[in-house]
C-alpha cells in the first residue's frame, strides 16, 4: 500500500458566532465537523457538496490557510501544525491552490510576468534571467506564449486567466494542488480545455489534486475518488465508479439524482427544501 500524501484526521473547524447580549450562550458554526480521509500520490480526489457544506473551508484547512479548531493534518506522515516557520515556508512550495474566480485572484495592477515571477522571488529561486526563462517555460506549458508576460489580467479572457492562475501554481513544481471550483466559472468549451490541461500536468508532474466542485458531471469525469460533504461532514466516500453505481447515503442519492442528464429517458428528481443554516443544527 502506498503512503498517503495527505492525511486528515478528525478535523473540526468551528466559528464562534457574535453574541447579541451578555446572557446569550456562545453559538458555533460547525463549518467542518469531524472529517477524516487520506489522499494518495497521483490521484484526483473530488470533494462535492452544496454551497455552505464546508468544502472550501476543508480545502483551506488542509493547506493551513486557516487553522483548524482541533484535529490534525499530516503531510507525508508529518503533522503540519508542528512545522517551524522555516519548514512551513518550504512546505508551501509543495502545495498550491487555484481559486474559482480568476478575475479576483490575479492582481490587476501587475503584469502576468510579474504575477508569475512572484513565487520564485519569495522562495529566492535562481537569478533574474533564470526566473524570466522559467516564467516563459511555464506559460508555454499551459498553452500561452511569451507575449503574455507584458500583459495585464484585464486584457485576458476568463480561460486565459485561469491558465495563468494554474501556471503560477505549478511554477514551483508542487506535489499537491487544491483546485477550488477552478473550472466552475468557465464555458463548457473552455472548461474542457482547462480539464485537459490539468490532466496533462498531472501526468507530467505526478500531481495530486484535491478537486473541490459542486458540478457532479465534472467531478465524475475528472476524479478517481469522490467524497460527498453535507453540513460539514463527509457522508459518503468511495471510488468514482463504485460510488456512481451504488449510492448509500440518502443525501448523496438526492444530490446525484439532481444531475441534469442529456439522456431523455432520465427524469429529474427533486430534493425538497434548502440546506439548513449551520447555526440551526
Amino acid at each position: 500500500m502506498t503512503i498517503p500524501i495527505i492525511e486528515v484526521e478528525n478535523v473540526y473547524k468551528y466559528y464562534k458566532q457574535a453574541r447579541k447580549s451578555f446572557s446569550d450562550k456562545n453559538k458555533y458554526v460547525k463549518a467542518v465537523n469531524g472529517v477524516s480521509f487520506s489522499l494518495y500520490e497521483g490521484e484526483s480526489f473530488g470533494l462535492v457538496g452544496e454551497s455552505g457544506s464546508g468544502k472550501s473551508t476543508l480545502g483551506q484547512v488542509i493547506l493551513q490557510l486557516i487553522n483548524q479548531t482541533s484535529g490534525t493534518v499530516k503531510y507525508r506522515g508529518k503533522n503540519v501544525s508542528t512545522y517551524t516557520k522555516k519548514e512551513l515556508k518550504a512546505w508551501r512550495k509543495q502545495v498550491q491552490i487555484v481559486f474559482q474566480n480568476p478575475y479576483a485572484s490575479l492582481n490587476p495592477k501587475k503584469t502576468i510576468g510579474w504575477i508569475m515571477e512572484e513565487p520564485l522571488n519569495i522562495h529566492r529561486i535562481g537569478n533574474k534571467a533564470f526566473r524570466r526563462q522559467r516564467v516563459m517555460e511555464v506559460l508555454e506549458e499551459v498553452g500561452l506564449d511569451h507575449t503574455f508576460m507584458d500583459r495585464y489580467p484585464h486584457e485576458l479572457s476568463g480561460g486565459q486567466r485561469q491558465r495563468v492562475a494554474i501556471a503560477s501554481a505549478i511554477i514551483l513544481e508542487p506535489e499537491f494542488m487544491v483546485i477550488d471550483e477552478g473550472v466552475s466559472a468557465l464555458d463548457v468549451s473552455v472548461q474542457a480545455q482547462i480539464l485537459n490541461l490539468l490532466k496533462r500536468l498531472q501526468r507530467k508532474y505526478r500531481l495530486t489534486y484535491l478537486f473541490i466542485s459542486h458540478d457532479l458531471n465534472v467531478v465524475q469525469y475528472f476524479c478517481d475518488r469522490i467524497a460527498v460533504m453535507y453540513l460539514g461532514e463527509i457522508v459518503e466516500i468511495g471510488e468514482t465508479e463504485e460510488l456512481g453505481r451504488s449510492l448509500k447515503h440518502p443525501y448523496t442519492k438526492a444530490l446525484f439524482s439532481s444531475i441534469l442528464s442529456l439522456d431523455e429517458s432520465e427524469e429529474l428528481k427533486l430534493l425538497d427544501g434548502n440546506l439548513p443554516s449551520l447555526l440551526e443544527i
Binding site: Q191, L195, N196, N217, Y221, E241, L262
Partner: peptide
Amino acid sequence: SIPDHRKRGMEL
C-alpha cells in the same frame, strides 16, 4: 465538450 462519467480517462 461536456464532461461526464462515461468519458473518464479520455481526453475531452
